[in-house]
């Protein structure tokens, strides 16, 4: 507290510069700490990982064997699990593009009117998004518990006993069940983005459309949707980016199982690198994720760099 008072009392003008920094260098000096940090702990490891991906290496021993593109070829031609993981990522991402996005848009449209308790609803639908995904995964694993979990208990209570399922231990249901958890925890993101987007659309457009005799659907089609074009880019890009990065939920809920049926690239890379000590192969898997995400993110990054 005393420091702040002292600082405020001392007039800015009195402080004299002892030495001059050439004006042209100043922006770069401001940028230096962030750039060096980012280069050392994000860019460098990334390039190092690219380098490692061309080797056969356990990640520990000093000897590395250069294998060229073999790791990448194995991902697509030899390793069935890697291809399953890629397919699971694609399914997950397609689901993420449609379901949470659609729910988020509908919720935003419903909450954008001055409805009673809309702030409370917004809080409720967004709240799962602030939880650690490990906790989310464990909560839902308990809900999916075959004997005592809420899901099966409810199904039995409403006479749908035959729908009761092992969920996370079931080969066909494990991934969809995990994805339902994803919807629960992530619907808040598209919702708040669409709410912000809706609020930026001028009321005058709606008034003009109404005067011209547009009905509710036409107003949505010709005013709301074009007004949300920018928001769509953000929301859909984030859905794809996060769809390929998915790790926490799968790791905590199914650990890639049963069998390897719910492996995604993110978890398979983790298992290969840190459990089976195939650092070279794991790095190649990581780079497949990175390459997909970086390419898909181009319109998003361009959108963010404007304005």
């Amino acid at each position: 507290m005393s420091e702040i008072t002292l600082g405020a009392r001392r007039p800015v003008i009195v402080r004299r510069r002892r030495w001059r920094i050439p004006g042209a260098a100043i922006p770069y000096l401001f940028l230096a700490p962030a750039t060096l940090w980012y280069a050392a702990f994000l860019v460098y490891p990334m390039l190092q990982s690219l380098y490692v991906s061309f080797f056969d290496w356990d990640g520990l021993s000093p000897s590395m064997t250069f294998v060229g593109l073999e790791n990448y070829i194995n991902i697509f031609a030899v390793d069935d699990v890697a291809r399953l993981a890629l397919w699971n990522n694609i399914l997950w991402t397609l689901g993420a593009l449609v379901l949470p996005t659609l729910f988020g848009l509908l919720l935003a449209l419903a909450l954008n009117r001055r409805a009673p308790a809309s702030t409370l609803f917004r809080t409720i639908f967004y709240s799962p998004a602030v939880l650690p995904l490990v906790a989310v995964g464990l909560i839902w694993a308990w809900m999916y518990n075959p004997h005592f979990g809420v899901v099966n208990v409810t199904l039995k209570a409403v006479g749908l006993r035959s729908w009761a399922n092992g969920w996370l231990s079931d080969y066909t249901m494990a991934l969809p069940a995990t994805f339902v958890t994803f919807i629960w925890s992530h619907v808040g993101f598209p919702m708040i983005f669409y709410l912000a987007g809706l609020q930026a659309i001028s009321k005058e457009y709606y008034e003009a459309a109404t005067i011209d005799g547009a009905n509710a659907f036409q107003r949505f089609r010709h005013v709301t949707m074009p007004g949300l074009a920018e928001t769509h880019v953000i929301v859909l890009s984030l859905a794809v980016i996060n769809g390929f990065k998915v790790f926490d939920l799968v790791y905590t809920m199914t650990y890639g199982g049963p069998g390897r049926s719910t492996q995604v690239l993110g978890t398979w890379m983790y298992f290969q690198t840190f459990q089976y000590y195939h650092a070279g192969y794991g790095s190649a898997l990581a780079w497949v994720i990175a390459a997909i995400v970086l390419v898909i993110a181009i319109p998003y990054i361009r959108r963010m760099s404007r304005g």
């Binding site: 990065k245 990581a286 990054i301």
Partner: peptide, 12 residues
């Protein structure tokens, strides 16, 4: 960096 997956830096 917004698009870089954490996985691609972990081992290094």
């Amino acid at each position: 960096g917004l698009a870089v997956p954490v996985q691609v830096t972990l081992q290094p």
